[in-house]
């Protein structure tokens, strides 16, 4: 390597090349940002309830057991398609809320040898927010992921 390249050449390649890739990355990031806002997600349906639901999702740290779009902890099921898995119609906000409430109210099951989910004591309004958030997440165009309803 001594003959092929000097230290200052290596340094210049590093700085110049990195700058080049950063610029390309920022360009593609900007394009992706617009793509998300205009194409793959529907911001018209991103209601206040969905926003509140996202807050609840974060405050309870659901992500540290479940995955959401494949990211999170791998201890509990994928939730981006949970409403599909339960056979809830995407327009049926009340049905989504009732199913979610029924599920979460039954937690923890206490069944010996089964993974436990905590009791979060949500109000009906909070259940509605959370259900709306999960319904909305399910509408994101994620290139056909997950492969099947099992998530």
């Amino acid at each position: 390597m001594r003959e092929v390249m000097t230290k200052s050449m290596a340094r210049n390649i590093f700085y110049g090349g990195s700058l080049f890739f950063i610029i390309i990355f920022l360009g593609l990031s900007a394009q992706s940002h617009l793509y998300i806002r205009n194409v793959s997600t529907n911001e018209a349906t991103l209601t206040d309830s969905v926003k509140k639901g996202k807050r609840i999702w974060e405050e309870k740290a659901c992500i540290n057991c479940h995955t959401l779009m494949g990211e999170g902890a791998y201890f509990a099921p994928e939730l981006v398609n949970v409403m599909t898995r339960w056979g809830i119609d995407p327009e049926d906000h009340t049905g989504a809320m009732e199913s979610l409430k029924a599920w979460m109210d039954a937690m923890p099951t206490g069944i010996e040898g089964r993974r436990q989910m905590p009791q979060f004591n949500l109000s009906d309004e909070e259940y509605q927010n959370l259900a709306d958030f999960l319904l909305w997440a399910d509408t994101i165009d994620a290139q056909d992921w997950p492969p099947n309803d099992a998530g």
Partner: peptide, 28 residues
């Protein structure tokens, strides 16, 4: 000299490599 070559390889691949997390989250 090794150091510069290594970090150049790291950033040249790693920056656009971010794309491996942009497959299934609503990105193009």
């Amino acid at each position: 000299k090794w150091l510069y070559v290594i970090v150049a390889a790291a950033l040249f691949s790693g920056i656009l490599g971010t794309g491996h997390h942009y497959y299934w989250i609503g990105t193009p």
